[in-house]
Design a protein around this nucleic acid. Structure first.
Lengths: 137, 137
DNA sequence: TATTGTTATACTCTATAACTATA
DNA sequence: TATAGTTATAGAGTATAACAATA
């Protein structure tokens, strides 16, 4: 079978990303969190008082799609909302949220370590630089 | 804003992939093709007579999800089915499909060239090697 | 028994438009 | 006027289960 896609960097990027996202999803499944939810938990922990709109900009998620994500974390008792002004609420992790955050970091660190370990050591720095060049702007 | 995600290779991989997929989608939109459909067109052109199941294995798409993809290309008159045996059909591009394939290659080549151009030249080989290490399990 | 293609279904992710209330 | 959050909705992507026909 001739596969003209194998040699295309863009296609390889998509397939590698999908494979790694699948690995992360497997690791987060026991926590009943999806990848985006885990990213939200990490960002709230690092930035207590952050608003939904700020999360949207950091993660490149639409405001309309953030609403059900935060609502689910709220209903699970992981996130608390505190009014900043009349229209926005600062978000912070509850004690249960902080506990979950520790488990998230364990799962994410294992994922990232496993990923980096698969890349030959001399290629790692160039790999990160290339991703930054594609992601930025 | 503290962003602990920025330094994570897995997260950067996901964001870079999403950015590049968006670029490809924009380039394919005038052809009314999605990225997976374009990949199918390229694979059929390179492998006339290929079956749906073989496409599924090459692209890592479930059989159940391939059905509507091929059906749409068929209804648009881009793909012709020829019975191989009683249960599978070989796929080939029609003349209209071959015309479209040329436009697909133009769009994909522009996409890939733009992508590679954004990566500093000394990092390109390592980038491809790293992706291959992550993709091929 | 295993494979091909199909249908039905469901869940996630993403995108847009429109609404409210607040600044 | 612009921003924050919400609701509703629609389009894609992806996953499983079950079925008929064929090998």
């Amino acid at each position: 079978m001739i596969d003209p896609l194998k040699s295309l960097p863009g296609y390889a990027l998509r397939r590698a990303s999908a494979a790694m996202l699948g690995d992360l999803a497997t690791r987060l499944a026991p926590l009943d969190l999806r990848a985006t939810e885990a990213a939200i938990v990490v960002l709230i922990e690092a930035n207590p008082g952050i608003t939904q709109s700020e999360l949207c900009r950091a993660l490149d998620v639409q405001r309309a799609n953030m609403t059900p994500l935060i609502a689910r974390l709220d209903h699970r008792g992981l996130v608390a909302r505190t009014a900043v002004d009349g229209r926005s609420q600062g978000l912070a992790l509850t004690p249960a949220g902080l506990d979950l955050h520790r488990a998230v970091r364990v799962a994410m660190d294992a994922h990232e370590t496993g990923l980096v370990d698969r890349i030959p050591a001399p290629h790692r720095a160039a790999f990160m630089a290339a991703l930054a060049a594609l992601w930025g702007d």
